Computed example of a mutant assay.
Amino acid sequence: MRRMRVLLFLTGAAVTMSALAPSGFIGGYRLNLTPSEPLGLWRIEELQRPVAIGDLVFLCPPPTAAFVEARGRGYLRRGLCAGGFAPLIKTVEALPGQTVGITDHVLIDGRSIPASSLRAKDGEGRALSPDPGGVVPPHHLFIHSAFASSYDSRYFGPVPDSGLLGLARPVFTFHP
């Protein structure tokens, strides 16, 4: 029954978004179909202040070889960011100058981040390589999702803040 509700929701959301896509894109609305954050309709809200730890944000990943490989593995969707990537929805966990330690989980300035365990392999059994950690460079952000299988800075490291689109605000979402 639960599976049927999820399927009906996704079908309805896809039909609705197809009809509203042109105005939705202009209005900053995005459909999230990945489990890193609740499924459904989200809005990008312009950031009127400096980004802060704990902000849930939309961010375009840089068009690097690591992200091209990630898209090939199915970790990222196609979208309108540079390189053809869809924006990520992640929480900012560290800002420039902070120290990230990566062992079997993530530490920021010595503080353990909840739900940050690392996996050795993805769901298909392919090896995952953790980021080595270090000091977050200027104009970069360390982003994270509490979803255990999330592809985030644990694996690809800090990302340029130039890809920051704004805060991620749920409009109509649900947890499957």
Score class of each variant (00 low, 15 high):
131 D>L: 10
132 P>I: 10
132 P>Q: 13
132 P>A: 13
132 P>R: 15
133 G>W: 13
134 G>L: 14
135 V>W: 01
135 V>M: 10
135 V>H: 03
135 V>E: 15
135 V>K: 08
136 V>D: 01
137 P>D: 12
137 P>M: 13
138 P>R: 14
138 P>I: 10
138 P>E: 15
139 H>T: 10
139 H>F: 13
140 H>K: 08
140 H>A: 13
140 H>P: 06
141 L>Q: 08
141 L>P: 10
142 F>P: 02
142 F>E: 07
143 I>R: 01
143 I>W: 02
143 I>T: 15
144 H>G: 05
144 H>M: 08
144 H>A: 05
145 S>N: 02
145 S>G: 14
145 S>M: 04
145 S>W: 03
146 A>G: 08
146 A>M: 04
146 A>L: 02
146 A>N: 06
147 F>M: 05
147 F>C: 03
147 F>Y: 14
147 F>P: 01
148 A>T: 04
148 A>L: 07
149 S>A: 12
149 S>R: 11
149 S>D: 13
149 S>M: 06
150 S>G: 09
151 Y>V: 03
151 Y>H: 12
151 Y>T: 05
152 D>I: 06
152 D>W: 02
152 D>A: 07
152 D>F: 05
153 S>V: 05
153 S>E: 03
153 S>T: 07
154 R>W: 10
155 Y>M: 12
156 F>G: 11
157 G>T: 01
157 G>C: 02
157 G>I: 00
158 P>G: 10
158 P>K: 11
159 V>L: 15
159 V>H: 00
159 V>W: 00
159 V>T: 03
160 P>M: 06
160 P>Y: 07
160 P>F: 07
162 S>K: 14
162 S>I: 11
162 S>Y: 10
163 G>V: 09
163 G>R: 09
164 L>C: 10
164 L>Y: 09
164 L>K: 03
164 L>F: 12
164 L>R: 07
166 G>P: 01
166 G>F: 06
166 G>N: 00
166 G>S: 08
167 L>T: 11
168 A>K: 00
168 A>S: 02
169 R>G: 00
169 R>H: 03
169 R>D: 00
169 R>F: 00
169 R>Y: 00
169 R>C: 03
170 P>H: 11
170 P>A: 07
171 V>P: 06
171 V>K: 04
172 F>H: 09
173 T>G: 03
173 T>Q: 00
173 T>C: 14
173 T>H: 01
174 F>T: 11
174 F>Q: 00
175 H>Y: 11
175 H>W: 13
175 H>C: 04
